[in-house]
């Protein structure tokens, strides 16, 4: 790691002001930041430790929704009784991520902000060319080994995957990200690489995520997160899906459905086409499998990740079947 200064913030506006200086970064659980600093990807001049800021780690659940403080740890939120009951997809996404130790360290705010696991991105010594690290330097992944790269939301500048799980659940459930200065619907929080793959969210310098708000809904209460990977645990998703489902009184017709994908796109990926195809339809395996094909509209595969196209559809279908009670 490069040499850096360490400051411990005691108040939100103080932290915000400190971080306006270029080279200054917030330090939360450190599980992304310290890791990337060791890789030489992040080279902070100063770290502002925000973990001791007051009032940012509460989890409150009421009729309107769940408000999860940005400094709450993944493990705390995962086992919160109200979250587990009313937002099962959120709890499951957290529990299926990383390891128990990492979940004890990592915060919700940091989790949203985690960065890609693209092997070239993480190896600056070996691969100087990476548009995400340095716009205009090129992309080392294109035309190369890309089993773990994205098929959706890519650009000719960057095909790196967004690796997180939680944000997929939050995207399906229409969460809002609260910051020191505004409220941002999660669908607008993450930005696709386009020609500026270094910009991953709309956060401005010095802006701090303070909480995530998940609105209450029947679909949220009947939701799940399905994660598929070669290793049974402690691995990022090869493909994943968060699904929330609300049925009509008849118990068979879909009133509301929310679908988002992980492990396949450059940002958490809402599959509105699947939702539209199923809204008002009757639950049934064939219907669901057919509709799920819309999840990968516009997908493009690169060398070795073509399998994700088929896999994503199946993961979406199975997740819908799971919340729909189809065994």
């Amino acid at each position: 790691m490069n040499d850096f200064d360490y400051l411990r913030a005691t108040a939100l506006d103080e932290a915000s002001t400190l971080a306006k200086t270029p080279g200054t970064m917030f330090l939360a659980g450190g599980t992304t930041l310290i890791d990337l600093a060791k890789c030489g990807v992040e080279r902070p001049g100063t770290l502002v430790d925000i973990t001791r800021l007051p009032d940012l780690s509460a989890v409150t659940v009421d009729e309107a929704g769940a408000t999860i403080g940005a400094l709450a740890t993944m493990s705390r939120v995962a086992v919160d009784a109200a979250v587990t009951e009313r937002y099962p997809a959120v709890s499951e996404a957290l529990l299926l991520a990383a390891s128990a130790q990492l979940r004890n360290m990592a915060t919700i705010g940091g989790n949203l902000m985690q960065r890609t696991r693209c092997a070239y991105f993480r190896d600056p010594a070996g691969y100087p060319a990476c548009n995400k690290r340095m716009p205009g330097s090129g992309c080392s992944a294109l035309e190369n080994v890309t089993r773990d790269h994205a098929i959706l939301g890519t650009s000719d500048q960057c095909i790196a995957l967004y690796p997180g799980d939680l944000s997929v659940a939050l995207t399906a459930l229409g969460a809002t990200v609260r910051t020191t200065s505004r409220e941002i619907p999660i669908a607008r929080f993450f930005v696709e690489p386009g020609d500026r793959p270094d910009r991953e969210t709309v956060l401005e310098r010095g802006e701090i995520v303070t909480a995530v708000h998940v609105p209450a809904s029947a679909a949220a209460a009947n939701s799940t997160y399905l994660k598929v990977r070669d290793r049974q645990s402690y691995e990022f998703a090869a493909a994943s899906a968060a699904v929330g489902l609300e049925l009509e009184e008849d118990g068979r017709t879909i009133r509301d459905i929310r679908v988002a994908l992980g492990g396949v796109a450059t940002v958490p990926w809402r599959a509105e086409a699947v939702e539209a195809a199923l809204r008002g339809r009757r639950l049934g395996e064939t219907t669901i499998r057919e509709a799920s094909r819309a999840a990968v509209e516009g997908a493009r595969s690169w060398y070795a990740n073509g399998y994700k196209i088929e896999l994503a559809c199946r993961v979406v279908a199975r997740a819908i079947m799971e919340v729909g009670g189809i065994k």
Partner: peptide
């Protein structure tokens, strides 16, 4: 009291 990874924790934290 909680299990964490010492390799991703700064001592100062």
């Amino acid at each position: 009291g909680e299990r964490v990874l010492a390799c991703l924790t700064l001592a100062v934290q």
